[in-house]
């Protein structure tokens, strides 16, 4: 009901100069929100591209990526402003 108002649980930052375009993160990503860019980076690789929404912050792409710093995963901060159950329920609602 309020899905469109809810912020994503996660965010991705991809360093496109470090990425070598192997595609393992795309394979690994459970919600499938990463794809290969059309644009080539400085070294001629098509790099991983976050589609901008839908990230759950699970961090699986981070572990699957062979470059140590190419992916940074961010998670929504748990805001304790009286609605612990509301934020806590986000995980449960998806299941």
């Amino acid at each position: 009901m309020t899905d469109e108002k809810k912020p994503d649980r996660g965010q991705l930052r991809i360093d496109e100069q470090e990425c070598k375009g192997c595609g393992l993160c795309i394979e690994a990503c459970p919600p499938k929100v990463i794809s290969l860019s059309e644009r080539l980076n400085h070294y001629g690789y098509r790099t991983a591209l976050y589609q901008g929404s839908g990230c759950t912050g699970c961090g699986i792409c981070f572990m699957a990526c062979p470059e140590p710093g190419a992916i940074t995963v961010l998670r929504l901060m748990n805001r304790g402003a009286g609605s612990v159950s509301a934020t806590g329920a986000v995980g449960g609602a998806a299941a």
Binding site: K5, P68, V73, M77, A81, S83, A86
Partner: peptide, 22 residues
Amino acid sequence: MSNQSVAEYEVARSKAKSLYPR
């Protein structure tokens, strides 16, 4: 009920400290 201000994120997974930045 829910706070509709800008969502705040914290870094959950990033390059380990034991690896050089460069």
